[in-house]
């Protein structure tokens, strides 16, 4: 399945498709992800994020297409349920990780659990959801993967833990050069965290690429109510309030506008919401 795909990418995905009965989970998904990137996999619920990650983890067989990883790639996958064996203690979970992996860093895994105050000798069944997440992450980190796939890693964590986990994860992968793909629907917390975007809707890849380049290629033009923005370029999305119109415009350079119009840089949130609302309109049409 993972036959040679030409390219220097860490992950090369070509025409990947997966359906469950009649419902399409993933359709014609094609992208390259260079090594060492931290990619955010963004999309609404049911967009196919979990399916894509599970296919890349090697646990799920796709129906169509292929993907190639580095020949020596070692993948760690933390699914959204953050599964752990309830009758194991965190210490035993690490032991399981050590036993089932070719590479294991006990000190790192233990440090992760200590960092987040997870008791090592209490059964996982008695830990909180957040603590179980930390155990699942510790096993993934201890295995020193070259590709780390995280499905909604922050979902069960409180806001403080979320920031800390992100920070620690980024520090871990900065040390090892690990490629990361993390799915999330909390777009606001991704700035600076991810440097690559994979945007999925209804199983299709809407946009993918370097985050800074994607955002730099668009501007938000804001002004009085109007049907068209006073700038050149493709209008991807527009919204009209009582006295104001907003246009998301794809343009290679920042256009000059005169008052009362202003041009704002596009935030990741603007971009994602605009892209997603386009597909919603497309569906109803």
């Amino acid at each position: 399945m993972t036959t040679a795909v030409v390219g220097t990418a860490g992950i090369a995905v070509r025409g990947l498709g997966k359906r469950y009965g009649k419902s399409v989970a993933l359709e014609d998904c094609t992208f390259d992800l260079p090594e060492g990137r931290v990619a955010a996999l963004v999309g609404a619920n049911g967009a196919g994020k979990t399916t894509l990650l599970t296919v890349l983890s090697g646990l799920l067989r796709p129906d169509a297409g292929e993907f190639a990883l580095r020949p020596d790639e070692r993948v760690a996958f933390v699914s959204q349920e953050k599964p752990v064996y309830k009758h194991f203690t965190p210490k035993e979970m690490l032991r399981l990780g050590a036993r089932l992996n070719l590479v294991w860093d006990q000190a790192r895994a233990e440090a992760w659990l200590k960092r987040f105050d997870v008791p090592l000798d209490r059964r996982c069944g008695k830990l909180s959801g957040g603590q179980r997440t930390q155990v699942a992450l510790a096993v993934a980190i201890g295995s020193r993967p070259t590709l780390l796939l995280l499905d909604e890693p922050l979902a069960d964590l409180d806001p403080l833990a979320r920031t800390e986990v992100t920070r620690e994860l980024l520090a871990e992968v900065a040390d090892s050069g690990t490629t990361v793909v993390l799915s999330t629907h909390i777009v606001t917390e991704l700035a600076g965290v991810a440097d690559h975007l994979l945007l999925l809707a209804h199983g299709k890849l809407l946009a993918g690429g370097d985050l800074d380049e994607l955002l730099a290629a668009h501007v938000m033009v804001v002004g009085p109510r109007a049907d068209e923005p006073p700038v050149e370029g493709e209008v991807l999305w527009d919204r009209h309030l009582d006295g104001q119109s907003l246009f998301l415009v794809k343009t290679p350079s920042t256009p000059a506008v005169s008052a009362p119009w202003v041009v704002r840089p596009v935030t990741l949130e603007d971009y994602v919401l605009a892209q997603l609302s386009i597909t919603r309109k497309g569906d109803s049409a």
């Binding site: 060492g36 990137r37 931290v38 920031t163 992100t166 920070r167 620690e168 980024l170 520090a171 992968v173 900065a174 600076g192 965290v193 991810a194 440097d195």
Partner: peptide, 9 residues
């Protein structure tokens, strides 16, 4: 990375 929570790249 560790102090500000941004990505190494």
């Amino acid at each position: 990375v560790a102090s500000s929570g941004v990505n190494a790249n």
